[in-house]
């Protein structure tokens, strides 16, 4: 971090009052941080560490916690609820990440120009992202109604004889959730891509044009490489948020029909808060965290190799 080097560089300049000054600074610094830090420590940091420890214990709220080593993990690996939830979470991520990313990029490219009223389009596309989730889920559930819903009526008029049952079919419930979440999230990532596009120097495009590059070549050789940091950030954020998917599923399908849309977060909730199996649910949490961590680290490594 740059700040550390500057501290070291200026420290000798301070001279004799140095140590006293440092102590004073520490006191002042902590006094600023403390109000937030106390809450952060108690309600975020400690629970994070507790989740880690609990995954090696057996504990319900009545008896004392008991150390059981890897037993929770063994039980987890032998339960098909876990594998189904893991599979559904992965499938969700596989659908949600590329679709959201692609659409967000296309929208950002379309919106990255100076046109009258462009602000309206940006705002309209962003709005679903901050609309309350319950309203979104309720509306889309009705749009997806198998018999008389607008979406299936539309599909029938364009020639799909047997439109899918969406949220009432165990094969189509997950796609329905993915469509809803892509619709909701793409405005957010579009904003990130817009910020990225606006940072691309115009000279690059001009130079490419002088060299005779057509629009497609400019896109492929100028836009895409310049957007690499943004794409990387978007990819990390999207993957992490896909693995965390929770509330949309709870409100839209509640994991059903059957277990066809149950995801990891929901399993943690059901086992932990629903059933009171604190240790077992923490073991699943740890797996969720490790997956998120691995994906993030992997993406960082790939990004670093590309930059070299």
């Amino acid at each position: 971090m740059t700040t550390e080097t500057t501290t070291q560089a200026t420290a000798p300049l301070l001279g004799r009052g140095n140590r006293k000054q440092a102590r004073r600074n520490a006191l002042i610094g902590w006094s600023f941080i403390l109000p937030n830090f106390l809450g952060f420590l108690a309600f975020t940091l400690i629970p994070v560490l507790a989740a880690f420890a609990l995954s090696f214990m057996e504990w319900d709220s009545f008896s004392a916690p008991k150390w059981v080593g890897l037993e929770n993990f063994q039980r987890m690996l032998g339960s098909d609820s876990f594998w189904i939830a893991l599979r559904n979470t992965l499938l969700y991520a596989l659908g949600h990440v590329p679709l959201t990313m692609g659409l967000a990029l296309v929208l950002a490219m379309l919106l990255n120009r100076k046109l009258k009223g462009i602000g309206f389009f940006r705002v309209a596309i962003f709005f679903p992202y901050i609309t309350s989730l319950v309203a979104v889920a309720v509306v889309w559930n009705m749009l997806f109604s198998p018999e008389t819903g607008p979406i299936n009526q539309f599909l029938q008029t364009v020639g799909v004889a047997n439109p899918p049952g969406w949220t009432s079919s165990s094969d189509w419930a997950l796609p329905a959730v993915i469509i809803t979440s892509v619709w909701r999230d793409m405005g957010y990532y579009m904003i990130l891509y817009l910020a990225g596009l606006q940072a691309v120097p115009a000279e690059l495009y001009e130079a490419a044009e002088v060299d005779g590059a057509n629009a497609w070549q400019r896109f492929w050789n100028v836009t895409i490489p310049s957007l690499r940091p943004t794409t990387f950030f978007v990819l990390v954020m999207l993957t992490v948020s896909s693995f965390k998917v929770f509330d949309l599923i709870v409100v839209m399908t509640d994991g059903g029909p059957g277990r066809s849309t149950t995801v990891l977060s929901q399993l943690i909730y059901q086992e932990g808060i629903g059933e009171g199996k604190f240790g077992y649910s923490s073991a699943i949490s740890l797996v969720l965290f490790l997956i998120v961590l691995t994906v993030t680290v992997l993406q960082f490594k790939i990004q670093q190799r590309r930059e070299r």
Binding site: A50, L54, V240, K244, L264, I268, G272, V292
Partner: peptide, 11 residues
């Protein structure tokens, strides 16, 4: 970076 779901039970 830690998913909130991972520590909602201890909370």
């Amino acid at each position: 970076a830690v998913p909130w779901q991972a520590y909602m039970v201890p909370q």
